[in-house]
């Protein structure tokens, strides 16, 4: 257990001290400020527009962070050889994966928190009231990102190109949001292809589940069971993916 915490702490420190982390935040801040400009185009509902754009930006930047950091994490340890002294310790390899992942989630969490504070600040200035209700969306964004991040981590256990891993992870993210289109295409294709597409749509995590922006911005209600359901759904996938990553790490050799 201590090993997991040690690796977790190390990863968190790495993230918070990395230039990429702060770069993303600064860039995001600039874009947040520009949402104020964009909202000027519309005559009404400035708050809704800034909130909508803001949440979209948070999702987008969170996604970038999750994909880049996720695919980089274990990959860099392996490439540098820094993983060797960890493996030489009496630490089970799955604990290494777990510690790294938890550290990554902490980084992303901090990232999201800061981005949200920025958004709330912008809204406060512009609209004059604290829009705490937006935090509901934060919960689902975080869960969605933890799923994407786990996929990134999975690839980084064996891929030799971080660029490739990032692109594939991003691709899977897009597929996850296009399952409806997949299902529709399945209906229109031949037997074999249709079956393939349909099973893909069933197995794949449906990322549309995480999108509650509309309800949040317009103040519409969500089923109370939704929050626990989305958590279980995420856990199911994340645990499985990390399990696969651990299996790969277990069987791997290091130069």
């Amino acid at each position: 257990m201590r090993s997991i915490i040690a690796i977790f702490g190390g990863t968190l420190k790495e993230g918070v001290r990395s230039k990429l982390f702060w770069g993303i935040l600064v860039f995001a801040l600039l874009l947040f400020l520009s949402t104020m400009v964009v909202s000027e185009l519309s005559f009404a509902e400035k708050e809704k527009i800034i909130a909508d754009l803001g949440l979209s930006l948070i999702s987008a930047f969170g996604l970038i962070a999750a994909v880049i950091l996720g695919t980089d994490l274990i990959y860099r340890d392996i490439q540098n050889g820094t993983i060797q002294i960890i493996l030489a310790r009496p630490v089970k390899r799955w604990k290494y994966v777990a510690g790294k992942y938890l550290g990554l989630m902490a980084i992303i969490g901090v990232n999201l928190l800061l981005l949200s504070l920025m958004l709330l600040f912008v809204l406060l200035i512009y609209v004059g009231k604290p829009c705490i209700y937006l935090l509901r969306s934060l919960y689902t964004i975080f869960l969605e990102l933890s799923l994407i991040a786990s996929i990134g981590v999975f690839f980084s256990t064996f891929s030799t190109s971080q660029l490739l891993s990032s692109l594939v992870t991003l691709g899977l993210f897009i597929i996850g949001h296009s399952l409806d289109i997949l299902r529709m295409s399945a209906g229109k294709s031949g037997k074999f292809l249709g079956f393939l597409l349909k099973s893909l749509a069933v197995i794949f995590p449906d990322l549309d589940f995480y999108d509650i922006k509309i309800k949040v911005i317009h103040g519409l209600p969500l089923e109370s069971s939704y929050y626990s359901e989305i958590l279980l759904y995420t856990l199911g996938y994340v645990i499985f993916i990390l399990f696969l990553a651990s299996l790969i790490m277990e069987r791997r050799e290091f130069r």
Partner: peptide, 21 residues
Amino acid sequence: PRFYDYLSGEEFLRFAGMLAG
């Protein structure tokens, strides 16, 4: 050897110590 660059000497040893139990 290459170790985690971003840690200080002290932090790194602490990290290694935790891994050692």
